[in-house]
C-alpha cells in the first residue's frame, strides 16, 4: 500500500505535554488562592488570640461547609454554561417539607429522604424547563427562586417549624471524631466525589466540552441536554444535603432560611476560578475558595464586624476576582 507509506514517512512524534502538570499547577489560579488562604489564616491568628483554638476553628467551618457542598454541584453547572439561582429557595422548600413531616412524627431517616426528594424534584423542574423547553437558565431559576421560597411562605407565613427529632441534630451539630464535625466530613466527602466526577470521568469531560462549545459537543455525539439535566438534578440534590445540614444545625425552619445564599454560592464558585462564561474551572479551586470565604467571615466575626459588611466584602470579591485579571490584561495590552 503505497498510500500508507506516504503518510508513514511524514510521521513525526508529538510530545504529550511540554510542561509537567505539577509545574503548570504551580502557576495556576488555585495556587494563588491557596497563598491567599494561608495569608488570611496567618493574619487571623495574629489578629485574634482565640483564632488558633481547635474548637473555634472547627466552629468556623460551619460558615462554609453547607454552601460549599452546593458550590461543588454549582461549579459543574456553571462550567457547563448554565446557572441555578434557586438553590437557596430549594433549601427553604426542602426544609419546609422536612419541618411539616417532622410535625406529623416522621423519624430522622424519613426526614432526610423527604428533604432530598423535594430538592431533587426542584432540580428536576429547573432542568426540565431549561433542557426540555430550551429556556434560559437565568430567568427560569429567577422564577423558581421566587416560586420555591414562595411556597414556603404560603405554608409557613410568619410561623416556624420546630420540634425535630433529637437524633436529627446529628447532621448539623454532631461530631464525627474529636473536633471534626459531621458536616465537615460530608464536605470533604463531597469535595472528593465531585472532584473525581469532574476531573476523572467521561461525564466530567463532557461537562467541559459542553461549556466550551455546546454545538461542537453535540456534533461529537455527546447528549448535551441529558448532561445538563443531570447537572440540575445534582445541584438540586446538593441543595437538599445542605438543607438537611442547615435545618439540623438551626433546629428550626423559617421561610427566610438561607436567604441570599445563592449569591454566596455563586461567589464561591467564581472565586474558585470557575469561568462564569463556562468551560473552565476546578473542584480544588472551589474547595480553597470555600476556605478563603470561611476564614474571611470568621476573621471579621472575631473582629466584631457585622454580617452585612461581610456581604459587601463578598460582593466586592465577586466583582474583583473577575475584574482584576481583565484590568491586568488591559494594562499589559
Amino acid at each position: 500500500m503505497t498510500d500508507m507509506n506516504l503518510t508513514r514517512e511524514a510521521v513525526r512524534a508529538i510530545p504529550d505535554r511540554l510542561e509537567h502538570p505539577a509545574r503548570r499547577a504551580l502557576k495556576s489560579w488555585e495556587t494563588l488562592l491557596l497563598a491567599v488562604a494561608v495569608a488570611i489564616f496567618i493574619a487571623n491568628s495574629f489578629a485574634s488570640p482565640y483564632f488558633l483554638d481547635p474548637w473555634n476553628l472547627s466552629d468556623a467551618t460551619f460558615n462554609f461547609t453547607e454552601k460549599a457542598m452546593i458550590a461543588f454541584a454549582m461549579a459543574l453547572l456553571i462550567i457547563a454554561g448554565e446557572i441555578d439561582l434557586s438553590v437557596a429557595s430549594t433549601i427553604a422548600l426542602a426544609s419546609t417539607a422536612m419541618g411539616a413531616a417532622a410535625q406529623v412524627g416522621v423519624g430522622t431517616p424519613g426526614l432526610v429522604a423527604i428533604g432530598l426528594a423535594v430538592s431533587l424534584a426542584c432540580g428536576a423542574f429547573n432542568g426540565a424547563l431549561v433542557t426540555g423547553l430550551g429556556l434560559p437558565s437565568i430567568v427560569v431559576t429567577i422564577g423558581t427562586m421566587s416560586l420555591y421560597r414562595g411556597i414556603s411562605y404560603i405554608v409557613l407565613g410568619d410561623q416556624a417549624y420546630r420540634g425535630y427529632p433529637a437524633d436529627f441534630a446529628w447532621f448539623g451539630q454532631g461530631y464525627a471524631f474529636w473536633v471534626i464535625s459531621v458536616e465537615f466530613v460530608l464536605f470533604a466527602l463531597f469535595a472528593l466525589l465531585f472532584g473525581i466526577l469532574l476531573h476523572a470521568t467521561n461525564f466530567g469531560r463532557a461537562v467541559y466540552a459542553i461549556g466550551n462549545n455546546a454545538t461542537a459537543a453535540a456534533f461529537s455525539g455527546i447528549r448535551v441536554e441529558r448532561v445538563k439535566f443531570i447537572l440540575f438534578l445534582l445541584t438540586g440534590l446538593m441543595s437538599g444535603v445542605a438543607a438537611v445540614c442547615l435545618t439540623s444545625r438551626l433546629g428550626s425552619t423559617r421561610p427566610s432560611i438561607a436567604m441570599g445564599w445563592e449569591l454566596e454560592v455563586v461567589t464561591m464558585v467564581v472565586l474558585g476560578g470557575v469561568s462564569i462564561l463556562g468551560g473552565a474551572g476546578s473542584i480544588p479551586g472551589v474547595v480553597i475558595a470555600a476556605f478563603v470565604m470561611g476564614l474571611v467571615t470568621f476573621g471579621l466575626g472575631l473582629l466584631n464586624v457585622p454580617g452585612i459588611v461581610m456581604s459587601i466584602v463578598i460582593g466586592a470579591l465577586l466583582i474583583a476576582v473577575i475584574a482584576l485579571p481583565r484590568l491586568w490584561r488591559k494594562w499589559r495590552g
Binding site: D16, A200, T201, N202, F203, G204, R205, A206, Y208, A209, N212, N213, T215, A216, A217, F219, S220, G221, I222, G279, A280
Partner: peptide, 28 residues
Amino acid sequence: RQGAIGAMPIFQNVTLPSLARISRNGFL
C-alpha cells in the same frame, strides 16, 4: 462552531467521541 473546541487541548478534542473506548467504568 461545530467541529473544534478551541479552548480544549488537542488530545481531549480527539478523544471526545471515543471516551467510552479509553475509559473503564466511566473513569478516564
